Computed example of a mutant assay.
Amino acid sequence: MENNRENCYEIAKQIYHLDEEVYKCVGSSLGRTYTGDEATCVENITKLLITRPQGHEIRSEIALIGNMARTIKNKEDHHRMMKEYNDILKKVEKIPSSFGSVDIINENLAALNSSNLRQHFSPEDHLIICIGRTHGSAGTDIGFALADKLKINYYDAEIFKQVLKRLDAEKEQVVDHSDYKTELREKIHKNTNIGKFFENFNRYHGLPTQDAIFFNQSDLICEMAKKEDFIVMGRCADVVLTNHRIPHISIFITASFEQRVHRMMELHNLNYKQAVLLLTKLDRKHERYYRHYTGKKWGDAVNYDLCINSASYGIEESVELIERMINQYPNHDK
């Protein structure tokens, strides 16, 4: 256990210093992933690596650094930073229970799979891959691994939170005015922050917090689609891009409920009942979110270009399957 902690601590220092070096090379106003003092940040990263290496948080933080590293214009610096980034990913993969180490594959289904898929984009279009997934299907692990293999950026909910924060649209600044009459009356009565209330009300047209964040996020996705190749996890990105007539590939990844339950039990050390309750709750939440913002049924095959039963392929084979789907895309080989 002690050896594992020492190993995680060394990797944490490497992650922190990579973030520092990438920021120096980019010189971007977007800032760094880790902004605190080194000792505190390294300790926090170490804890994440030890306790939740399979979780989305550490993966998102590493991906955000990788996304920034890919923007480095100096070839020498770019090569050096990406080499360091790849080295860190390999080390993280070797940590016991690291993300992606618990596969989703069902050997009986895997023996039956086959594919011969093609997708055509014009040379001017960026490669945008939108991935929807059920929890426990390894969809997030597949998306992260695919982005790394294609050498393109990866965005998920955690990364968008950080990006929006950097663009001065952080959640804390978005005031929920769903009950604006009551709130305004209280502010008039107390004679406090009335100006700030109207400023935020006008800025977000009286939208509830979640709606304001969604529309900011959607604008950001469309802006990025004009400038770069990337993979985006969830966020109703497939419908957002369709509505703006921006070419993309939409993929939905799932597996049988029983298969997902067993994977969640392994990943999170849950008993069967706990895993069932957690998956049911998360699936319901995603279904409501998708239906609310798109009017479509989440996971319905007609809404996607490709639906994958990840239990038939596992993480690595699913990545290869998607790669074969885009192998005729002119600009994906960076």
Score class of each variant (00 low, 15 high):
Asn3Ile: 07
Arg5Thr: 13
Arg5Val: 07
Arg5Ala: 09
Glu10Ser: 06
Ala12Asn: 05
Ala12Met: 02
Gln14Leu: 14
Ile15Phe: 03
Tyr16Ile: 10
His17Val: 06
Glu20Asn: 07
Glu21Ile: 02
Val22Glu: 01
Leu30Met: 08
Gly31Cys: 05
Thr33Ile: 15
Thr33Asn: 13
Gly36Val: 04
Thr40Phe: 06
Val42Glu: 01
Leu49Val: 08
Ile50Asp: 00
Pro53Cys: 01
Gln54Lys: 10
Gly55Ser: 12
Ile58Val: 13
Arg59Phe: 07
Ser60Gln: 10
Glu61Cys: 02
Leu64Asp: 15
Leu64Cys: 11
Leu64Val: 03
Gly66Asp: 03
Met68Gly: 04
Met68Cys: 06
Ile72Phe: 01
Asn74His: 10
Lys75Leu: 09
Asp77His: 08
His78Thr: 03
His78Cys: 05
Arg80Ile: 07
Glu84His: 13
Asn86Ile: 01
Ile88Gln: 10
Lys91Ile: 01
Lys91Pro: 04
Val92Pro: 02
Glu93Leu: 10
Ile95Ala: 02
Ile95His: 07
Ile95Gly: 05
Pro96Glu: 13
Ser97Val: 06
Gly100Ile: 11
Gly100Leu: 03
Val102Met: 05
Val102Trp: 12
Asn106Asp: 15
Glu107Arg: 07
Asn108Tyr: 14
Asn108Arg: 13
Leu117Cys: 04
Leu117Asp: 12
Gln119Thr: 15
Ser122Gly: 03
Pro123Asp: 06
Glu124Val: 06
Glu124Ala: 06
Asp125Trp: 00
His126Ser: 01
Cys130Tyr: 13
Ile131Ser: 10
Arg133Lys: 14
Arg133Gly: 00
His135Arg: 06
Gly136Pro: 12
Ala138Thr: 05
Gly139Met: 04
Thr140Cys: 09
Asp141Tyr: 11
Asp148Gln: 12
Ile152Ala: 13
Asp156Pro: 09
Ile159Cys: 04
Val163Glu: 03
Arg166Gly: 15
Lys171Asn: 03
Glu172Asp: 12
Gln173Pro: 00
Val174Trp: 08
Ser178Leu: 10
Thr182Cys: 02
Thr182Met: 10
Glu183Thr: 14
Leu184Ala: 00
Lys187Ala: 01
His189Glu: 11
Lys190Gly: 03
Asn193Val: 02
Phe197Asp: 05
Asn200Gln: 12
Pro208Val: 08
Thr209Met: 03
Gln210Asp: 14
Asn216Tyr: 04
Asn216Glu: 13
Ser218Cys: 03
Glu223Ile: 08
Ala225Pro: 03
Lys226Asn: 09
Lys227Ala: 04
Asp229Ala: 04
Arg235Met: 15
Arg235Gln: 15
Val239Tyr: 03
Leu241Gln: 07
Ile246His: 08
His248Gly: 08
His248Phe: 11
His248Ala: 06
Ser250Asp: 12
Arg260Pro: 01
Arg263Phe: 09
Met264Gln: 13
Met265Glu: 11
Asn269Ser: 05
Asn271Cys: 04
Tyr272Ile: 13
Tyr272Lys: 15
Lys273Asp: 14
Gln274Ser: 02
Ala275Cys: 01
Thr280Ile: 11
Lys285Pro: 01
His286Gln: 14
Glu287Asn: 14
Tyr293Asn: 07
Thr294His: 04
Gly295Cys: 12
Trp298Ala: 02
Val302Gln: 04
Asn303Met: 06
Asn303Phe: 07
Leu306Gln: 03
Gly314His: 08
Ile315Thr: 09
Ile315Lys: 12
Ser318Met: 09
Glu320His: 11
Leu321Gly: 05
Ile322Arg: 12
His332Lys: 08
